[in-house]
Amino acid sequence: MLSTTSDDNHYLAPTVVESVKILVVGSFGVGKTTLIGSVSEIDPLRTEETITEASEGIDAVDSTPEKTTTTVAMDFGRITLTDEIALYLFGTPGQRRFWDLWSGLAEGAAGALVLVDTRRLEDSFEVLDQLETRTSLPFVVAINQFPGAPNYEPEQIRTALDLDDETPIVVCNAKNRNACVRALAALVRHALKTH
């Protein structure tokens, strides 16, 4: 017999009546894998591979020299957001050469959380374009606060990324579980309002 205890979150609580698929997107090295790992109540599935010299000149690794691995297919995790709602998180690869996977990952999703690094805002343009051209998902922009990164007001980010007034912008730290949960809750509220 399967049981759910406070020490074992492998199984959904019997109170969960709604499962929601969420896409977590962003450019290379913006913190998608970290965010899913921070909030997932199950051991997250990761498809990480070591970055090799073969990617030199193909992947923009200059701004993330400490990064040694990269997602090549997807990340997957689960979080019970409320007693009745569980979110299934699907993290997309950040490199353009893996973007063909996005269409399949987006199928059936209720919305997308777009992670942004203020040190490399220009990297977000292609991500937003990819999201808007390959999906019709509502999305929330989450500013991932990296140490030493410039701080901007959400309205400055809205202007820089040319976002609609209706697109919510939240601030989070992908390593902070509570901040990530708040960002995901903002996305769920926005998706419900949009649908």
Rank of each mutant, 00 (worst) to 15 (best):
I79N: 00
D7W: 12
S3H: 12
M74S: 08
E53S: 14
S63K: 08
F90S: 03
E53W: 03
N9W: 10
A179D: 13
F28D: 04
I42H: 05
A185V: 09
I157T: 05
I157V: 12
T50R: 15
I36Q: 03
M1W: 05
T82P: 11
R46K: 15
T92Y: 02
A86L: 01
G37S: 11
T118K: 00
A142T: 02
H10R: 14
T159K: 14
A106P: 05
E166T: 13
L115V: 02
T159R: 13
R189Y: 08
S136R: 15
Q130T: 10
S38L: 03
K175D: 09
E126T: 10
E155I: 09
L187Y: 04
D165P: 10
G94I: 11
G29H: 08
T82G: 12
E41F: 04
E126Y: 10
R182K: 13
T71F: 07
G31F: 00
V127D: 00
F28C: 08
A112M: 02
T118V: 01
T69W: 07
G148L: 06
G31C: 02
G77C: 03
N173M: 09
D8K: 15
V30A: 00
I169Y: 09
K67L: 15
T70N: 11
G94F: 09
D162C: 05
D123W: 09
V140L: 02
I85L: 06
R78A: 07
P44K: 04
K32L: 03
G111P: 00
I143F: 00
K193D: 14
E56T: 14
T80E: 13
G57R: 10
P44V: 06
Y152R: 05
P65D: 08
R46I: 12
E166R: 13
G148C: 06
G148H: 06
A183I: 03
R120N: 10
L81Q: 00
S38Q: 01
F98R: 13
E66C: 07
S136F: 12
R158W: 04
V140S: 06
I22T: 03
T133P: 03
L101S: 06
W102N: 02
R189H: 11
L192Y: 10
F125D: 05
L192S: 13
Q130H: 12
P147F: 09
A183H: 10
T50S: 12
D43V: 14
A73Y: 13
Q130R: 15
I58D: 14
L161C: 15
N144C: 03
T118H: 00
A110Y: 04
G91L: 03
L161Q: 08
R46W: 13
P93E: 12
V114S: 04
Y88Q: 13
T5V: 07
P147C: 10
V25H: 07
R97G: 07
A160M: 13
L163T: 08
E66Y: 10
D62M: 08
G77N: 01
S124W: 00
F28E: 07
S124E: 07
S63E: 08
G104Q: 10
H190D: 03
S27K: 06
T82F: 07
I51V: 07
L113I: 01
T68E: 15
F28A: 06
P150M: 11
P150Q: 12
I79F: 01
A186S: 15
D83T: 11
T92Q: 01
P168Q: 05
T33Q: 07
D165R: 15
I51D: 03
I85D: 05
R46A: 15
V116N: 02
Q156W: 14
A54Q: 13
N176R: 08
Q95S: 11
G108E: 01
E18K: 10
T5S: 12
